[in-house]
Design a binder for these strands. Structure first.
Length: 324
DNA sequence: AAGACGAAAGTGGTTGA
DNA sequence: TCAACAACTTTCGTCTT
């Protein structure tokens, strides 16, 4: 029997790293993976983005289909959303092998040693229990919020890190799960309003915010400031607005940023106001209330932001309600 | 009657002494 | 650690479409 089989024998299909796949030279997002050379190369300009990556393919050659099957590596892909990463081996207490025979004395002492270590690592079993609970909560939360699985996996990875750093101790699992999910969404530039995440879980906004900030400090992850533009496609589709409106909204936000209208302002309020203005300009008007609702801000905020935009961007406001 | 407006008071988080 | 502060929310009365 082979007791040494471990994660290194398995294909790593999940990409756990947090880095962006955009070429710093030409801004192209087409990145070519060259697994045999262990490099990632920009498809636009050929710049090598990272080298010395691990080749996850087989390290032997196969000359026929059957051979390829026989020699391929085995095991399910490692997944971070499964609490034990899909790897689990339990050493039985009986001194018998799988066919029920007694073990030889040397084998027996070897097994004894392994068993001892498994018991010693009980720490891990409490961690496992925590993880199992956390992962089912993560599953529930993200399906309720409609979070795609790559982001889930990232959240799961962050959660693992925070367990290792003992951040969960003294805090509720739910709160930490919600915080990691919120963080994962932001890292992948698909931010969700804090309120939305808080509502979907049983955690209040304050606790969620605290956990999130803790996460940032302790894991030292770089998280891009949330950009109002990242909210637009989702909000626009919830309001069933056409794509020209979305484009106009992006334009308005970019101009607002250029004149410093966005600093210190809630990105949600900015997104909402820009959508409001664009919707009126292109004759697909939505009420302040409706927009405020999907953006989870108040009508007052929408109003204040959009008044500023109209005033400072010099949008001549025919039909914009304001004083000519 | 619904939507928009704006004043005033309250809230939670950040900043600087 | 505390007070000042800016941004945002809540609430409410009034005006506009």
């Amino acid at each position: 029997m082979d007791y040494t089989r471990s994660a290194t024998d398995r294909k790593e299909t999940v990409e756990p790293s947090v880095e962006q796949t955009e070429c710093p030279e030409c801004r192209s997002t087409s990145v070519v993976e060259d697994v045999t050379r262990g490099e990632r190369v920009c498809g636009g300009c050929g710049l090598v983005l990272s080298a010395h990556r691990i080749d996850t393919g087989a390290e032997w050659r196969a000359f026929s289909a059957e051979e390829s099957d026989a020699r391929s590596r085995v095991g399910a892909p490692v997944r971070y959303t499964v609490h034990d990463k899909g790897l689990s081996t339990v050493i039985d207490w009986r001194d018998r092998d799988t066919s029920g025979r007694k073990l030889s004395p040397t084998r027996r002492s070897e097994i004894y040693r392994l068993r001892k270590w498994q018991i010693r690592s009980r720490v891990h079993s409490s961690m496992d229990r925590n993880l199992a609970q956390a992962m089912s909560e993560l599953e529930r939360l993200s399906s309720q919020l409609g979070i795609p699985s790559p982001i889930r996996e990232l959240a799961a990875l962050l959660y693992r890190k925070s367990i290792i750093k003992k951040l969960v101790r003294g805090r509720s699992i739910e709160a930490m799960v919600a915080a990691t999910l919120y963080a994962a969404c932001r890292i992948r530039l698909k931010p969700r309003p804090l309120d939305e995440v808080a509502d979907a879980s049983r955690v209040d906004k304050k606790k969620l915010g605290q956990c999130y900030r803790l996460l940032l400090r302790s894991l030292t992850i770089k998280i891009p400031l949330s950009n109002p533009i990242d909210y637009i496609s989702r909000f626009a589709s919830e309001l069933s607005l056409s794509s020209p409106v979305q484009l106009r909204t992006v334009e308005i936000l970019q101009r607002s940023r250029d004149i410093g209208l966005t600093i210190g302002r809630d990105p949600l309020g900015l997104a909402a106001a820009a959508i409001y203005v664009a919707s009126i300009m292109l004759d697909e008007r939505r009420t302040q209330r409706a927009i405020a609702e999907v953006a989870r801000v108040t009508e007052v905020t929408v109003r204040n932001r959009y008044k500023e935009m109209v005033r400072k961007l010099g949008i001549n406001s025919m039909g914009l309600g304001g004083q000519s």
